[in-house]
Amino acid sequence: MAAIVCNNLTKRYGKTTALQNVNLSLEPGRIIGLAGPNGSGKTTLIKLIQRMLVPTQGQIMINGSEPSPETKAHIAYLPDRDFLPDWMKVCALMDLYGKYYGDFDRASAEQMLANLAIDTTQTFKKLSKGTREKVQLILTMSRKAEVYLLDEPIAGVDPAARDYIIRTIISNYNPEALVLISTHLIADIEAVLDEVIFLKQGQIVLHENTDDLRTRVNMSVDEYFREVFKC
C-alpha cells in the first residue's frame, strides 16, 4: 500500500492557487525529493500531509486513511524554521518528545547528540543556527515514524553539517518508512534520493526514479532541474 496518495489535490489561499490538481502515489521504503523553486508549493504540500492545512479540493490518504490525529502520530515532521520552545534545554526537549511521541527513541537521540558533542544542558536558543538545525533534525529522525516530512533540512547549514545531516538520514533509513525531503538545493542530496518530484507553480511537472531520470536525460538531477526551472 502507498504511504501517501494525493488525488486531485488543490489548495488555494484566497485567489492564489498554491497547489493545483496534484496526483501522487508515494511508496514506503523510499527517500523522495520534493524539488521546486521558492513559492512552487512544496511547503503547502507538506503542511497538507501533516494536516496543518485543509485541502480546498481533492483528497490525501496516509497509509489508507484520511489525515487525522491518528495519522499525524505516525508522521515525523521537520518544519522549515525553528519550531521548538527555545527557552528549553536540549535535554528538556528530549523529555518533551518522549512525552508527546510514543515512537521517540531517546537513546538514539542521545547517541547522535553525543556524536556531535552537543551539550544537552544548553538552552536551545543559545545554540548556533547550524546546531539548532541539527538538534531539530536529530529529534525528528529519532522517532520511529512511518512517514518523515523534512522541509528544507539543509538550507542553512555549512557543507560539513550538510554531510552529517545526509548521513543521519541514511543511517535512520527504515525500509518500512517514507522520507519526503523538500529542497531547492538538489545537488547536495540527489545521491540519496530514490525518486524526485518537480513542483512548478503548484503543479507536478515530473515524478521519476532518479537513476532512470539520469539515464533518460543524460544529466544529473540538479542539471536537469536548472534546465526545467531556468529563469
Partner: peptide
C-alpha cells in the same frame, strides 16, 4: 549495505 551507503553518501536502495 547501510554502512557502505553511508560511506558513499548514497541511498541504501541504490
Amino acid at each position: 549495505v547501510r554502512d557502505l551507503a553511508m560511506e558513499a553518501g548514497v541511498n541504501p536502495n541504490t
